[in-house]
């Protein structure tokens, strides 16, 4: 019984109509083609994929919001869409883009409302509110109406709201979208902590860094199909996608010294004279710190950026290696 969540042959097709009034054309979109996976108890699963790949559809099905066309899902012994009300008592959900708090009410009142909705007894509820306030650091704004909170404060409150009934499983749909670095970091630390305390978590995100740091298992979906399943380390080996280093040089007359020319050719860089820009493709094996040091020693640098590979190019990379 270590399979906590199991998903078998999941299919979902949407019918959309194109065109106006009379000449409507039926078009079928296969959101999920045939999805299979399982999650073990206590796992932290990262679920990634480009926009429109089927991530949200999967989450909606797993949380009981949507019914699939066919397939089997069991979560902790329940089928999400068959006994919705019973099932949702044991899950927590956060949608990064949609608030589940009461807009006009203070955070603490939202929590109390949820306690009565979930039928948690008052004493336990109070204790949990105090605990979450402490761990998520909500104290300073817990009496303010939700509409007045900053995005970071709101997201911490959303997390609190999703845990108020102490569920075993947490579904997080892009919980860090639009957050600043500090808030993002705080939330990631918190998630690590509750995962360590035994909560099973499924997280969707755009941000690969988050996945690498948090998750022990990863699923990649593209075009309604799973293209990768496995542990996070395995993914790194699979995707030898170089980072792009872009260096804008301070204006100069265009002549390069011998040293400079050797460095450029050694790292297989190219110089765009018009933009005064140097581009390098850096493999994972090369340390960024090392290369930056060399560059700053030998060039007059105006600006310096590193492009991490996007989910889209990683997915492309996986297709090429398979």
């Amino acid at each position: 019984m270590d399979e906590f969540i199991s998903v078998r042959n999941l299919k979902k097709t949407y019918t959309v109509y194109e065109g106006k009034f009379f000449k409507r054309q039926k078009k079928e979109i296969h959101a999920l083609k045939n999805i299979d996976f399982e999650i073990k108890k206590g796992e932290f699963l990262g679920y990634v994929g480009p926009n429109g790949a089927g991530k949200s559809t999967t989450i909606k099905i797993l949380t009981g919001i949507m019914h699939p066309d066919s397939g089997m899902v069991t979560v902790n012994g329940f089928c999400p869409w068959q006994s919705r009300k019973e099932y949702v008592k044991n899950i927590g959900v956060v949608f990064g883009q949609k608030t589940q708090l009461w807009w006009d009410l203070p955070v603490v009142d939202t929590f109390e409302l949820l306690i009565s909705i979930y039928g948690v007894d008052k004493k336990t509820g109070r204790k949990r509110i105090a605990e979450l306030t402490e761990r998520l650091d909500l104290k300073e704004f817990i009496n303010r109406p939700v509409r007045q909170l900053s995005l970071g404060q709101r997201m911490r409150s959303e997390l609190g709201a999703s845990l108020i009934h102490d569920p075993d499983i947490l579904f997080l749909d892009e919980p860090t979208i639009g957050l600043d670095i500090v808030s993002r970091h705080g939330i990631m630390e918190f998630l690590k902590e509750i995962n360590a305390n035994g909560k099973t978590i499924l997280l969707t995100t755009h941000n690969l860094k988050e996945i690498e740091e948090l998750c022990n298992e990863i699923l990649i979906i593209a075009d309604g199909e799973l293209v990768f399943k496995g542990c996070t380390e395995k993914l790194n080996n699979l995707t030898e996608i170089p980072r792009i280093l872009k260096i804008t040089l301070k204006p100069f007359d265009g002549t390069l010294s011998e040293d400079q020319r050797i460095i450029i050719s050694d790292f297989r860089g190219e110089l765009e004279m018009q933009k005064m820009q140097l581009n390098f493709r850096i493999d994972k094996s090369v340390s960024l710190a090392y290369i930056s040091k060399i560059m700053f020693e030998h060039f007059e640098i105006e600006d310096f950026t590193i492009d991490e590979p996007e989910i889209e190019s990683i997915v492309k990379g996986i297709f090429q290696t398979c």
Binding site: K60, T63, G64, I65, R84, K85, E86, V88, K89, I91, V93, F95, Q97, K98, T99, Q100, W102, W103, D104, L113, I117, Y118, G119
Partner: peptide, 23 residues
């Protein structure tokens, strides 16, 4: 229109009841 109706479905009460306590 905003898709927030989804958040009503993740609660262990009926959607109509949830709308009644929306505000």
């Amino acid at each position: 229109q905003t898709g927030r109706f989804d958040t009503l479905l993740i609660r262990p009460i009926s959607t109509l009841k949830h709308l009644m306590i929306h505000a």
